[in-house]
């Protein structure tokens, strides 16, 4: 345990040494600060404690303005863009060099000669890499959680579950980064191939969503439909895990509510509702578990490669 802890502490020190760590931290504080500057009243949005008042009929779809819906909307946006998008993307970029620098000639020799099995060494470093995302996600979610609670008076305890879920989402991608890094020892390759994999995972889930909601006629091509559906269960469910975070923070149907009474948005609402119904039917444990199985397979492959090669 002492060795494992040493690896994790070292990874955190390495994270802290990177500029991107502090940039992300500043961004988190900025987002929370900006949110803090807004408050909501009937048909109005107050900016900077009433310095500016913006009249809006954007929320006419809902009977009157409800702060909890606003909060849910914001959390919905945060999950899609700040946390599940930019947060994970920046963390992948920041941690992509963790393994290549660890495997540098001269650096790895000192570590490999220690009395610990290589698999343990790999695992310690792997978990250490996730500390980066864990710290960033915790700071961001806790700050925004407090702003939403203290400033808007809406407490969303379920939103705190976004921390482990985002770390999970990150880990599904980080395992690919680690595998590529162990094989190629290249940071650039690790970033590029991880991005490519992320796009592929998102693509598979999106196409499957289209099959079930927007274009059910496509299901007639059984081979393609079943192929895509099976692929969805094999690859990490990056989209679905974001949905879980929204659902558990009660932000899942926020955008649907906002657009509900707007005829122009009817088609989009129908589609979103169908996707949501389909997702609601998915077992959270199956979403997380099947993704973890994928991750475990990739980590095992990376560990095997790490353990077998000469340095």
């Amino acid at each position: 345990m002492m060795q494992f802890w040493a690896l994790i502490v070292d990874s955190f020190r390495e994270s802290r040494d990177r500029k991107i760590f502090w940039v992300m931290l500043v961004l988190s504080v900025l987002v929370a600060a900006v949110m803090f500057c807004f408050s909501f009243e009937q048909g109005k949005v107050n900016v900077l404690f009433g310095m500016w008042v913006i009249e809006t009929d954007y929320f006419t779809g809902i009977t009157g303005i409800k702060t909890d819906v606003i909060a849910a909307l914001v959390v919905d946006g945060i999950m899609d863009t700040a946390l599940g998008g930019m947060g994970v993307l920046l963390s992948i970029i920041a941690t992509a060099s963790f393994f290549p620098t660890f495997l540098d000639r001269g650096a790895i020799d000192v570590v490999l000669c220690k009395p610990m099995p290589r698999w343990k060494l790999f695992l310690g470093r792997y978990v250490g890499g996730m500390v980066f995302m864990g710290v960033q996600a915790t700071i961001f979610v806790v700050l925004t959680f407090l702003v939403v609670g203290l400033r808007w008076g809406v407490w969303l305890p379920g939103y705190l579950l976004a921390i482990p879920l985002v770390v999970l989402l990150f880990s599904y991608l980080y395992c690919i980064s680690a595998l590529v890094a162990v094989v190629t020892r290249s940071t650039v390759a690790a970033v590029l191939l991880t991005m490519l994999a992320w796009m592929a995972f998102t693509g598979v889930q999106s196409v499957d969503d289209l099959f079930t909601s927007k274009y059910p006629k496509w299901q007639e091509n059984k081979l393609v439909y079943e192929g895509v559906h099976a692929a969805r269960w094999i690859v990490p469910k990056t989209q679905d895990i974001i949905y879980l975070a929204k659902k558990w923070s009660r932000a899942a149907n926020a955008s649907v509510l906002v657009h509900a009474d707007n005829d122009d948005d009817r088609e989009m609402v129908d589609w979103a509702t169908k996707v949501e119904i389909a997702r609601r039917e998915m077992n959270p444990l199956a979403i997380i578990g099947s993704s973890l199985l994928f991750e475990a397979a990739i980590v095992l492959a990376a560990m095997w490669k790490f353990s077998r090669r000469d340095y």
């Binding site: 070292d10 020190r13 040494d17 650096a107 000192v110």
Partner: peptide, 8 residues
């Protein structure tokens, strides 16, 4: 030709 982490 060892390389130690410069941040420590």
């Amino acid at each position: 030709n060892h390389r130690f982490p410069g941040y420590l």
